[in-house]
Amino acid sequence: MTKFKRKGSLLKIYSWIPIIFLFISVLNEFDFNYLNLKYFSFNFPFILIFFFTLKDFKHFDYFFVFIAGLFNDTVIGLPLGISSLSYILICIATAYIRNITIRPSPFKDWFYFLFIISLINSLNYSILTLFFSFNLDLTNYLINTFFTFSFYIVFVSVFKYYLRGIND
């Protein structure tokens, strides 16, 4: 990684990778739904935002997270601002946990993530059904939460390699 330090522009590109990935994921939503695995879906942006705002918030601009939320709403067809609010709420939660944590533990982070995504999905569901009269299936939300929670630990192990690279 000493190469990055020498080549400042390369380091800059490297540090932008999570944001680029965030935009690709909201524009593309690679959720493998075409495999026709019934009920299978997970929210990759949640994992990405939670991890990077918790561990590498200096390179993860909240403003871009907000814009990514707007893009996500446009692609999915939700009222503008819903996903932005969800993403920013994750950022607030991670900022809070960062302030109160003295000794970070991956296991605690994992269950804290479950709590946060459950809360945000509930909020999403409530806003969409109560204020926008959307018909939504709660089961889909529950299953999505479960898979997002399950995949968190998998993606975290990958993201750690990236962090090791940027910190070295």
Binding site: F57, K58, H59, D61, Y62, F63, F66, G69, L70, P79, L80, G81, I82, S84, L85, I88, L89, C91, I92, A95, I127
Partner: peptide
């Protein structure tokens, strides 16, 4: 934070405003 352009509270308000 050092690299952030907006505080989270501002962004929350903007989100609600956009909604």
């Amino acid at each position: 934070s050092t690299q952030q352009k907006f505080s989270l509270l501002t962004l929350v308000f903007i989100s609600i405003f956009v909604i």
